[in-house]
């Protein structure tokens, strides 16, 4: 591996970590608050990407306006799923999980019917420039996600420590019953968590839309790495998800560069199995007695 390629790969790995973190943090937050898992979370990401495609590539909106719309679309979808599926199924983990599996079909068909099936949609990058660093060139568009990931996740952690609403969210994630006794409105918190989860996935989808070839099946491809990150990080742990996102961002990018994408997924799954065999609760998960 030449030093140029090495630097390029490291930059890509950091970008991939940022994207994975943005997706996984929302997924794990929603899980922590509701104890419910959203298999269609990757499809939120896909909807974000398609929002940018529709508004920016087709509609001629400025790129950043389109990204902002992707965030809003993600949040709204999150709210709808919370209201329509998780709330009626409250507490029924298996049903919630399977219902969101059914949702995967729904979103895929929706997007496919609206914007066409099959071939990927190319989206022209608004920033053609490359960042030059020690002789290596890294696409500016690709590293764009990094500052956004840092600010959003840092902001979320700050919000959950310093703000009353955020602390309430944290309390529900730690012990829903005790939180309810303190007068915290659980439904409001689950809605908030799903809105944040949707918004973050939409943001990641919007930012990465110009890099990935987007197709209706994009959600199905991105969900597995995101789930692996959440499970390995420890379900419900935002810090754990961030840590695991960095680990898998690097593992997947390097294996993809050195071998191929299929092997990268295989290696990641194997790492997950090993971690779970040793630490069933994940790296930073709490042990449930």
């Amino acid at each position: 591996m030449s030093s140029q390629l090495l630097i390029q790969t490291i930059a890509n790995a950091i970008a991939a970590s940022g994207m994975l973190a943005l997706i996984a943090v929302g997924l794990t937050l929603a899980f922590g608050v509701m104890q419910m898992a959203n298999l269609a979370h990757g499809h939120f990401f896909m909807m974000g990407a398609y929002t940018v495609y529709a508004l920016y590539a087709l509609g001629g909106w400025p790129f950043w306006w389109a990204v902002a719309a992707a965030v809003a679309v993600g949040a709204v979808i999150g709210l709808i799923v919370e209201r329509g599926i998780f709330r009626p199924l409250q507490g029924d983990v298996v049903s919630g999980f399977i219902a969101t599996a059914g949702l995967m079909f729904v979103f895929e068909v929706l997007v496919g019917e609206l914007w066409g099936w099959g071939l990927s949609r190319p989206i022209p990058s608004p920033y053609m420039r490359a960042v030059r660093f020690m002789g290596a060139a890294v696409a500016f568009q690709r590293v764009l996600v990094i500052p956004f990931a840092v600010v959003s996740i840092g902001g979320l952690m700050f919000f959950m420590r310093r703000f009353r609403l955020g602390r309430a969210l944290r309390a529900v994630a730690q012990d829903p019953e005790a939180a309810a006794l303190q007068g915290i409105n659980i439904n409001r918190m689950t809605a908030l968590a799903m809105a944040i989860a949707g918004a973050y996935a939409g943001l990641a989808g919007g930012l990465m839309s110009t890099i990935y070839a987007i197709t209706p099946s994009l959600g199905g491809h991105i969900i597995l790495p995101a789930l692996i990150v959440v499970v390995v990080g420890g379900m419900g742990s935002i810090g754990g998800a961030t840590l695991a996102a960095v680990i898998f961002g690097f593992v997947m990018t390097f294996v993809t560069t050195l071998v191929d994408g299929v092997t990268a997924v295989m290696v990641s799954v194997t790492v997950m199995a090993v971690v779970l065999a040793i630490r069933p609760q994940g790296l930073m998960g709490r042990v449930i007695a």
Binding site: Q35, V93, V94, V231, M235, A273, P280, Q281
Partner: peptide, 10 residues
């Protein structure tokens, strides 16, 4: 030893 959702995902 992995419980609930983690098990399904794994």
């Amino acid at each position: 030893r992995t419980k609930g959702w983690g098990f399904y995902i794994a």
